[in-house]
Simulated scan of single mutants.
Amino acid sequence: MTVSELEAYGMQWMDEESVDDCLSAQSTGVLGLPDEQAPYLLPLSYAFDGGDNLYFTYVLGESSRKGELTAQADLARFLVYEASSQFRWQSVLLTGRLDRVDEDQWSEIRHLLADAWQPNTLQTAATSGGVEVYEFEIRDRSGIEQDGLAPGFRENVDP
């Protein structure tokens, strides 16, 4: 079914402000990079600049599939979602370009990166080197959500 068909059940498109609010409120998502057989998916934390960019901190080893695929990708997708109940949830899908941020430019975004959530394991590993920062330039954004019971739901529930 399409989103339009599901509107009767309470699903709706998010406006741009709601999409940005969701990106500001959340801190993790799933990055999809193109690969030969199937998309390469990985969970990542991010920092949002409030406009058209997300920032990812990569902790890379000597050999990194994530690093290789990022370098090869013309476009990538990033999915952010939050589901507090069956009737209250949001899903934002972004399409954009990933570019490595030169280390001499990190000071310009340090305030964003400092507030980005990261698992402790990655914070600890980052102290041993192999850290790169990537900017995800948002070229397309869309979101869907449901915020409450579907219309007519209460009327259809037996007392």
Rank of each mutant, 00 (worst) to 15 (best):
residue 136 F to W: 04
residue 143 G to W: 07
residue 23 L to E: 01
residue 148 G to W: 08
residue 148 G to Q: 07
residue 73 A to F: 12
residue 96 G to V: 08
residue 128 S to M: 07
residue 46 Y to S: 04
residue 78 F to W: 07
residue 88 R to H: 14
residue 2 T to C: 05
residue 120 N to W: 06
residue 103 E to S: 09
residue 71 A to C: 05
residue 117 W to E: 02
residue 139 R to Q: 13
residue 2 T to Y: 03
residue 62 E to A: 12
residue 131 V to G: 00
residue 42 L to I: 15
residue 122 L to Q: 02
residue 40 Y to F: 14
residue 137 E to C: 13
residue 98 L to R: 00
residue 103 E to Y: 13
residue 146 Q to Y: 02
residue 29 G to L: 00
residue 2 T to L: 06
residue 18 S to Y: 06
residue 110 R to G: 11
residue 115 D to N: 09
residue 78 F to A: 00
residue 123 Q to H: 04
residue 104 D to L: 12
residue 118 Q to I: 05
residue 119 P to G: 13
residue 58 Y to N: 05
residue 69 L to N: 01
residue 128 S to P: 03
residue 112 L to C: 09
residue 33 L to P: 02
residue 33 L to H: 01
residue 16 E to W: 06
residue 87 F to N: 11
residue 123 Q to E: 15
residue 78 F to K: 00
residue 28 T to G: 06
residue 96 G to P: 02
residue 6 L to I: 04
residue 111 H to C: 07
residue 148 G to R: 04
residue 153 F to C: 12
residue 136 F to K: 04
residue 109 I to K: 03
residue 10 G to H: 12
residue 57 T to R: 10
residue 117 W to Q: 12
residue 37 Q to Y: 08
residue 39 P to A: 07
residue 92 V to G: 05
residue 129 G to T: 07
residue 49 D to A: 06
residue 102 D to Y: 05
residue 24 S to R: 13
residue 101 V to C: 11
residue 50 G to E: 09
residue 28 T to H: 05
residue 105 Q to S: 13
residue 151 P to L: 09
residue 52 D to H: 09
residue 18 S to K: 11
residue 143 G to L: 08
residue 54 L to G: 00
residue 20 D to I: 10
residue 32 G to C: 06
residue 76 A to W: 01
residue 40 Y to W: 09
residue 50 G to C: 11
residue 38 A to E: 13
residue 53 N to C: 08
residue 97 R to V: 15
residue 100 R to F: 12
residue 63 S to H: 15
residue 47 A to R: 04
residue 131 V to Y: 02
residue 69 L to F: 01
residue 109 I to A: 14
residue 87 F to V: 14
residue 22 C to F: 06
residue 50 G to I: 08
residue 5 E to G: 05
residue 156 N to V: 11
residue 142 S to E: 13
residue 91 S to M: 06
residue 8 A to C: 11
residue 33 L to T: 05
residue 100 R to A: 11
residue 32 G to V: 01
residue 19 V to L: 10
residue 157 V to E: 12
residue 57 T to Q: 14
residue 65 R to G: 01
residue 156 N to S: 15
residue 141 R to W: 08
residue 27 S to M: 08
residue 109 I to D: 08
residue 47 A to W: 00
residue 109 I to Q: 07
residue 53 N to K: 15
residue 123 Q to C: 07
residue 91 S to N: 03
residue 151 P to I: 03
residue 22 C to A: 14
residue 135 E to Q: 15
residue 29 G to M: 03
residue 73 A to P: 12
residue 23 L to T: 01
residue 71 A to Q: 11
residue 2 T to M: 09
residue 135 E to K: 15
residue 31 L to H: 02
residue 63 S to I: 12
residue 124 T to N: 04
residue 91 S to T: 08
residue 67 G to A: 13
residue 55 Y to D: 04
residue 86 Q to H: 09
residue 89 W to E: 12
residue 14 M to R: 05
residue 51 G to I: 01
residue 136 F to M: 02
residue 79 L to G: 04
residue 25 A to R: 14
